[in-house]
């Protein structure tokens, strides 16, 4: 880290170390970005993105933006990506997206536009005369954080205040969006029980998952006495996602083998032949 920081303090040019770091980490960043786009599962995408962001944080540090580099790690990789993961969890971790395109021509158009845009951007940068780098030695002389603070609380103070207001508004907005207003009195336990009786639903507590204590994972349906699985034993979310694992075939096979063995032992051929 200190090496990196030292490399970044170089004012105008770049050291060989920084070049090496750029090529290696840059490759990782591009790979991470590509994986973000191409991974089937949202969780994998999120992890790849987090990796790219960490690489970017290192690049910030290398460019003399110490404060931003740290904030990038804390806020982006730490907070924002965690938020993403929370939502992915809410929506369904394992649900893989189909990457098959449904809109005709969309993929080709997107690739064409992306390619064209990228080429144009790179051509634009290549055309621009950007050979003279001043470096941040002078600006960071009094410390990067102090320098930023001086600017933030003088020149950019109004923008700063407004961004604060924006954050508050966003928080309220998120609350409003996700909050559901209760418009009636919550029903008591007694009322719920009475309703269950009236509707003739399952009265006793739902059966537990797991089969003969051999499988006790929550996604495995408990088996009924005849060996068929009972979906009641599995959480409703899992049921809706279709993430129930079925072990009934195994259990039925076990049952059959047991019956055969006991039939052989008890010398009951008519049973065994069955």
């Amino acid at each position: 880290m200190t090496q990196l920081a030292a490399a970044a303090t170089l004012s105008a040019g770049t050291s060989t170390g920084e070049a090496f770091q750029f090529w290696v980490l840059g490759t990782f960043a591009v790979l991470g970005a590509l994986c973000t786009v191409l991974m089937k599962k949202a969780v994998h995408s999120a992890l790849c993105l987090a990796g790219t962001m960490i690489v970017l944080a290192i690049f910030y540090l290398a460019n003399g933006a110490y404060f931003l580099g740290v904030v990038q790690i804390i806020v982006y990789t730490g907070a924002i990506m965690m938020l993403f993961l929370f939502v992915v969890m809410l929506v369904g971790v394992t649900a893989a997206d189909s990457l098959k395109e449904t809109i005709k021509g969309q993929r080709w158009l997107a690739l064409l536009c992306g390619l064209g845009f990228g080429i144009l951007l790179i051509a634009g940068i290549g055309n621009a005369s950007l050979h003279h780098f001043n470096g941040l030695g002078k600006a960071n002389a009094g410390g990067n954080v102090q320098g930023l603070a001086a600017l933030l609380f003088t020149n950019y103070v109004f923008a700063f205040e407004i961004t604060g207001a924006l954050l508050i508004t966003a928080t309220l907005g998120a609350m409003v969006l996700t909050h559901r207003e209760r418009t009636e009195r919550a029903r008591t336990q007694r009322e719920l029980a009475e309703q269950r009786v009236r509707e003739g639903k399952h009265l006793p507590p739902l059966p537990a998952p797991g089969v003969y204590a051999r499988h006790n994972a929550v996604d495995i349906a408990g088996l009924l006495p005849d060996g068929t699985p009972s979906e009641l034993t599995v959480n409703r979310t899992l049921r809706q996602r279709g993430q129930i694992r079925d072990v009934s075939a195994e259990a039925l096979g076990d049952l059959k083998a047991l019956e055969q063995r006991s039939a052989e032992r008890l010398e009951r051929p008519e049973e065994a032949s069955k």
């Binding site: 997107a110 536009c113 064209g116 845009f117 634009g124």
Partner: peptide, 16 residues
């Protein structure tokens, strides 16, 4: 997403 393609294409044209 189709609309987004148009937007993106438009942005590319503006850059060009």
């Amino acid at each position: 997403r189709s609309y987004a393609v148009s937007m993106f294409g438009g942005a590319a044209l503006i850059v060009a």
